[in-house]
């Protein structure tokens, strides 16, 4: 009887693990979370000291995947295996802890993970997010810690952040709204083929460098007085350096093909 109970419990655990909809882990002693995936990701602030990873069900602009049909009956009594690592979470993730760094590698493809990952992290934790080599976009909201984020074609939206920010997209738009600018380290925002739109509090102290090789640069900060559409066109095809207010931390913004918009937050 005892053996039967253990077997039943084991099957129950396996079924829970293989079909779980969330992954949760305590972040005690962790200062930085590094996530590598191929899909869309949205990260917001949670109230606990845990990382919670689930499906990005509320994504309004994620591309729908209708090519792959996961027939759960067919995979019954089987477990998924992956080419690029071992799933030690039951959620298609390989999680590795090294000192105060937690590394998460998403083992599922963009199609399998579609529409994406919805992640909740505690305030104050540093975030490294790489959305891979496809069209995964990144949305990160409400963090006052360091954020570094890379996408290939997908856009980057950082909302109510204070940095330092290191953002790079090959061809996606980058939109960042700062609620304050951390003076601890430099911020660099780059894209090769799209526009960058950055909003800073009007009293920000910073040394700014703006560069668009083929696009134009617009701002309502006090750079150069050439008016165009309410914002000032302050240059094209060149590097523009200026301090704003009292000067301070370095903020470098550059796009090869796109325009740069640097706005004051009212």
């Amino acid at each position: 009887m005892r053996k039967i109970t253990i077997i039943v419990l084991a099957f129950f655990c396996i079924s829970i693990c293989t079909s779980q909809e969330n992954y949760k882990q305590s972040l005690d002693g962790v200062k930085r979370v590094k996530i590598y995936t191929q899909t869309n990701v949205k990260i917001t602030v949670g109230s606990s000291n845990d990382i919670i990873i689930g499906d990005y069900k509320d994504c309004k602009d994620c591309r729908k995947n209708d090519r792959i049909i996961n027939d759960k009956n067919k995979s019954k009594k089987l477990r998924p295996i992956y080419a690029n690592g071992n799933d030690n979470t039951g959620y298609g993730l390989q999680v590795k802890r090294e000192g105060d760094l937690l590394e998460i590698l998403d083992l599922k493809s963009a199609y399998q993970r579609n529409p994406g990952l919805r992640i909740i992290l505690p305030q104050g934790i540093s975030i490294s997010l790489n959305c891979g080599q496809l069209d995964g976009h990144a949305v990160i909201e409400g963090f006052s810690s360091e954020i570094d984020v890379e996408t290939h074609v997908g856009r980057i939206d950082l909302i109510d952040v204070s940095g330092p920010i290191t953002a790079n997209s090959l061809a996606g738009e980058v939109n960042i709204i700062f609620n304050a600018v951390n003076q601890k380290g430099p911020t660099t925002i780059r894209t090769s083929g799209s526009n960058i739109d950055v909003t800073l509090p009007k009293n920000t102290n910073a040394n700014i460098e703006l560069r668009s090789d083929q696009g134009a640069v617009f701002t309502d900060f006090n750079f150069k007085p050439i008016k165009k559409d309410g914002l000032r066109a302050i240059g094209a095809n060149r590097r523009i350096k200026s301090s704003i207010n009292k000067g301070g931390v370095s903020i470098k913004i550059s796009s090869h093909l796109g325009n740069i918009y640097l706005r004051k937050k009212e």
Partner: peptide, 12 residues
Amino acid sequence: NNSPSERIKGVG
């Protein structure tokens, strides 16, 4: 450093 911002600062 683990932080890209710190590495960029170092390069600076």
